[in-house]
Design a binder for these strands. Sequence first.
DNA 1: GTGTGTTTATTATAAC
DNA 2: GTTATAATAAACACAC
Length: 294
Amino acid sequence: MPRPLKTTYGDQKPPYSYISLTAMAILQSPQKMLSLSDIYRFIMEQFPYYRNNMQKWQNSLRHNLSFNDCFIKVPRNISKAGKGSYWTLHPKAFDMFENGSLLRRRKRFRVKHLDEDFLNSKLTTTSAYIKFINDPSKVHQKSTTTSSSFHQNWMLESAAQNTLNQQCKYPIGNESEFVESMPTRPKRAFTIESLIAPDIEATNDERSCQSVHRKHGATNSRYPQVNSDSNQSAHQFLLSNFNQLITQQHIYLPTIAYQLYNPQQTLNAMYMYQNKHLYDRHSSFRLNGPLSVF
DNA sequence: GTGTGTTTATTATAAC
DNA sequence: GTTATAATAAACACAC
C-alpha cells in the first residue's frame, strides 16, 4: 500500500520526486486520473513548499509527464469543457515503487520499443484494409495483387502476427507477470486456412470475429462486396481485432482509436489517425490513451 | 496571452 | 568510475 501522505513538511521540500508527487495525486483520485491543473492543485494543497516558484516546478512536472512512460495521457471527452487531457498511470506502473513507498522507485519505467513496432505494424496494415473497404480503386497495390489476395495477405499478416504473439512476448512491464497474463492458444499449422480457422475453445468474440472472416470471402477467395452489410461486418471485425489488442496484448491503442465502442466512429478515428500521424513527422506514434471512461 | 504538452540539454545525485 | 535517474532550464508548438 502506498505510504500515507505526510503533510507536515511545512515549507521544506518534501523528499518526493516529481514522479512520486504526480503518482500520489493520481492514485488518490477516485478515477485514478487527473488533469494537469488538478495535479498542480493537489501538490500545492499537500505540500506548502510548492506554493512558491510555481513556474519552475510546474515546468518540471510537465516535463516528467511527457518524458516518463509511466504516465499516460487520456483524452478529455470533447463534450466536457476544460483544457488539456487527463493523466493516469500506466497499468503496469502502479507497482513501480518499492514496497509501495513513494520515496523510491524500483527502476525507471519504460514501454519497450517492440510494443510500438508491433502496434505500428498492426495499425498500418489495418489502415490499408480500411482504405480498401472504403474505396478499393484508390489503394495502391502491385499489379499482380487482386482484391482477394490483398484480403488474404491482410488476413495472413494479421493471423501470423497473432501466432507470433504467442511465441514472442511483448512485455510492457514485468515479464513474468506478462507471461502469466497471456492467453493460451493451441498451436496450429501456418496456413491461411488453419490460422484463421476458429479455435476449438474460441471465445465468443473470436467466433464472431472469425465468422466475419469467412463472410468476407477468406475461404472462398472472393473479397467482400463493398456494401453496407459487408462494411458493417468489416467494421465489426476490425473493432474486434483492435479490442483483441487491448484485452489480449495488454497494449494501449493510440488515443484517437479509442473513442466509443462504435464501429463507424472507431474506424473513422483510426483512419484519420493513420493519415494524420503515421505518415508525418517521424512516422511514429506514441502509446497513449486508454479508452475514455467519462 | 495563457495553459498545456513535447523535446533537448545540462547538471546533480544515487546506485552499482 | 560508470551508469541510471531525477531535477532544472529553456525553447518551441499548439489549442483555446
